[in-house]
Design a binder for these strands. Structure first.
Lengths: 157, 157
DNA sequence: ATATCTGCAAAGACTTTGCATGAGA
DNA sequence: TCTCATGCAAAGTCTTTGCAGATAT
């Protein structure tokens, strides 16, 4: 199974092996799309993109694969309030690509920001530790979003 | 219009007047339920509760009212990943009742916590300020949730 | 070989919309 | 009075499920 960039098997292979799941062409293609994208894709977005490189795939498989990926923690599922779920490859809460979201409640525009991530992460670590202990949770992820009006939407009406 | 506890008109009256919306019995009843509840109600939960004190109401009105309340910022809408939206009376990000959520991805249980709110709020204020400036957003709210497994779900399987 | 995965079609769940009636200011 | 609000029923969207055939290991 050749990797198009010659860098060897993607990091997610181990994950699949370990869990006893099969790494099929569909799943490969979905992960491929997710790993190369500009984020915030809905299930249908993903379906359409994957369909181009792997036309045999069905929307059902996309949903089923995403569910699997979310459960194994490889993908994070977001809700920005527009009725459809969005998916992003999860690189772990402390990895380079980690970011939080700023959502415009007027037009739905989403800004990824990383500006304050360091301070935020530091605080989140503490909070996480405290919460784990107090409530006996094993915390795996967090979600931080700010809501407001973008420049355009502030000036409408 | 008598208030059952004799404390005078609820704080939301002004809100309605100011926006030109009518304060109808349905809306009153919905706000009433929201203001007295143990939180995290879905639209249907609210419908059922309101229906008891105001049987003429329809589910449609609940949805329409909630949309209105969310838009005016009086209510906050949450998604905990179980397919239905949840609603909470918003008391403002710095008010007494403000809390964040800890969500069990195993069983869906939700814990409200306030333990670390003060530190979190302080950081959030700074972040908010920075984001507002940099991205030209008028920020009105934020969402913080931690995800993980509760004690029970950690020990299953 | 065999347990897992997939596509299609149909069902399911939550939410929104159209329209005529009813109610607040 | 006149606009805004409501209920009912129907439609809309996103997502999940059933099942027979295909596939990975």
């Amino acid at each position: 199974m050749p990797w198009r960039d010659g860098t060897g098997p993607p990091w997610w292979h181990g994950k699949f092996r370990g869990c006893g799941y099969r790494l099929t062409a569909s799943r490969q293609a979905i992960l491929d799309v997710l790993s190369k994208t500009s984020k915030h894709l809905s299930a249908e977005d993903i379906y359409l993109k994957v369909h181009k490189i792997y036309p045999a795939i069905g929307l059902t498989t996309v949903y089923r694969t995403l569910e699997l990926l979310v459960q194994t923690g490889m993908v994070f599922k977001f809700d920005f309030g527009d009725g459809k779920a969005r998916y992003e490859l999860s690189e772990g809460p402390r990895s380079i690509g980690h970011h939080h979201h700023l959502v415009c409640t007027g037009c739905g525009r989403i800004v990824d920001y990383t500006d304050f991530i360091d301070d935020e992460i530091e605080l989140l670590n503490q909070t996480e530790k405290g919460l784990s202990k107090k409530y006996n949770f094993k915390i795996t992820n967090h979600l931080i979003q700010f809501y407001g009006l973008c420049y355009r939407c502030q000036n409408i009406k």
